[in-house]
Simulated scan of single mutants.
Amino acid sequence: MNELLIIGAGGFARETAQAVRDAGDLKLLGHLDDDTSLHGTEVDGVPVLGGCDLVHDRSAAQVVICVGNPRDYASRARLVRRLGLAGDRYATVVHPTAAVSSTSHVGPGSVLLAHCALTAAVRVGAHVAVMPHVVLTHDDVVGDFATLASGARLGGGARLERGAYVGAGALVREGTTVGAWSLVGMGSTVLGDVPPGEIWAGNPARRLRAAAAPVLDELGTRTTGGPAT
């Protein structure tokens, strides 16, 4: 059984740890987190072993990076770049209740949580976070480092470009694109293309403002660690 280290010890990391336990195909060694106050503690019974750079001391273990939130959804990309691990170090975690069709593909470092569905010919890139009850329908393309919060739905042929964030319960119309490092607010309905690096929300979704500086910095950056989509 392959060993696994989870980078991060927050909510997403905890949910991923539960998915690993439920799937039973990886041996979970523990969390790594740069918050020193967590070192030597346990999170839901899983030890926090130390800082993120300890991943280099456990070279036989696979890794999944589980950080990020709507205030800084570029943090996964920065950590992948900082750690500089080979692509084959990254595991793909799929909860046993997730429905992934035989014609769909999920990249390294990505996490699919409980009851999400990938229907037909869906392509999910590397280091993507797919939260519970997300539905990706035929021919959707989800770029590296994207995040789909709980209950998000994409119509057929929709595209999330690199680093895009779709909030909880949001709907994206078929054939539309959410641009790189843009964020769609929770409960929004996207009826047309969202340009890169912007925050949109509402029903129908409209532009609110540009994304924050740490996110916009990623627009010109190509992070290694998995294939681009």
Score class of each variant (00 low, 15 high):
M1S: 13
N2A: 15
L4A: 11
A19S: 15
R21M: 06
L32P: 01
D35N: 15
T36E: 15
S37K: 10
L38R: 15
G45H: 04
L49Q: 06
G50S: 05
D53S: 12
H56N: 10
S59P: 04
A60P: 01
A60V: 10
A61P: 01
I65Y: 07
P70R: 12
Y73E: 00
A77C: 05
R82Y: 04
G87A: 14
D88H: 15
A91D: 08
T92Y: 02
P96V: 08
T97I: 08
A114H: 14
H115T: 10
H115D: 13
T119N: 08
A121R: 14
R123H: 14
V124H: 02
V128Q: 09
A129S: 12
H133F: 13
L136F: 04
T137C: 09
T137G: 05
D140P: 08
F145M: 07
A152W: 01
L160V: 09
L160K: 06
E161V: 05
E161W: 05
L171H: 03
V172D: 07
E174D: 15
T176A: 02
T176Y: 00
T176G: 00
T177D: 00
W181I: 10
M186E: 08
M186S: 15
G187D: 06
T189P: 00
V190G: 07
V194A: 06
P196V: 13
G197N: 08
A213Q: 11
P214M: 03
G226V: 11
